[in-house]
């Protein structure tokens, strides 16, 4: 049994919230730059240049890349040999978010009630997902998620007879409907299988995977490539002004599912797709 004081969790999350909002992950930087290299639309090239300039300015001047510093999505992979001391783990996570968003001059974008609204003033609560894994380590991933793209995401409960074509059509339809709203070039996180609640989380987790990585299953790796190609034939382009680069990547994750169903969730993310991980 390894003891970890929850204050370590707070300190780590505070630091990661600030860093994740200021430094675009290397895989995204590389992805956007390689899209720029093969972009054939003249307006699109200019837009991509400005997007690149923006994340470089944010990086050097320590300014948030985007003003929507998001809801703080926190993923914890907790080793089952770990014993947390010094207080509540989730309180420690929220405290880390509170401190990070305050000290880092990040935007507080969380409303206390979905209908009656009212800003909580410190960007808490965080959206926490916990997985228990073997070992005595804790892996923390901080993924600030903006809502321009979150609002364009979709979930559908397919019948198995819809098949692979049904899934392909749904992904394309969701990207088409999103159009310019989610700040293209986008990253498309797709979850297939599981059930109603797990498929949505699967799509979100797909966005945590580096944009230049592939699903380990060659069938889904090929589907990722095929869907990226099809999305980039739509012509929506950077910012929706027309061009080749509508998406930087498509990441697909799957789960076994029920004999009667084939759930699919498409979680769209913008060109400022942020995620940072650390192991304690």
């Amino acid at each position: 049994m390894r003891e970890i004081d929850v204050s370590v969790i707070t300190d780590t999350i505070e630091k990661m919230c600030i860093s994740a909002n200021v430094h675009l992950p290397k895989d995204m930087q590389k992805g956007i730059k390689s899209c720029r290299a093969c972009e054939d639309g003249p307006i699109a090239q200019t837009i991509l240049d400005q997007i690149i300039q923006n994340f470089e300015v944010a990086d050097t001047e320590q300014v948030p890349i985007c003003q929507d510093t998001g809801m703080a999505c926190i993923f914890l992979e907790v080793g089952q040999e770990v014993h947390f001391t010094g207080g509540s783990l989730y309180d420690a996570v929220h405290e880390g978010v509170r401190r990070g968003y305050t000290k880092g001059y990040l935007r507080k974008s969380v409303e206390a009630d979905p209908i009656r609204r009212g800003n909580t003033g410190d960007n808490t609560p965080a959206m926490i997902t916990t997985d228990i894994v073997p070992g005595d380590k804790v892996k923390i991933t901080v993924a600030p998620k903006g809502f321009g793209s979150e609002n364009m995401s979709a979930l559908r409960m397919f019948k198995p007879s819809a098949g692979l074509q049904g899934i392909k059509d749904f992904i394309l339809e969701t990207v088409e409907k999103a159009g310019p709203n989610p700040c293209p070039p986008i990253v498309v996180g797709v979850g297939i299988g599981g059930n109603f609640d797990h498929v949505a989380l699967l799509a979100k987790k797909a966005l945590l995977r580096p944009v230049d990585s592939h699903n380990e299953d060659p069938f889904y790796a090929q589907l990722e490539d095929e869907m990226l190609e099809k999305i980039n034939q739509l012509g929506i382009g950077p910012q929706g002004f027309g061009g080749r680069t509508t998406a930087v990547g498509v990441n697909i994750e799957t789960l076994p599912t029920h004999i009667a169903g084939m759930p699919c969730a498409v979680n769209i993310s913008c060109h400022v797709t942020r995620h940072e991980s650390e192991v304690i």
């Binding site: 837009i47 300015v57 300014v63 985007c66 003003q67 321009g148 159009g179 310019p180």
Partner: peptide
């Protein structure tokens, strides 16, 4: 802003000579 507008907004723009400008979404630092 950024993103699509409704028919109603576009009709009002035509009537009152409105202009909808786009700034680059996600380029807040710049």
């Amino acid at each position: 802003g950024k993103g699509a507008r409704s028919k109603e907004v576009i009709e009002a723009m035509k009537k009152y000579h409105g202009v909808y400008f786009g700034a680059i979404g996600g380029a807040g630092a710049l």
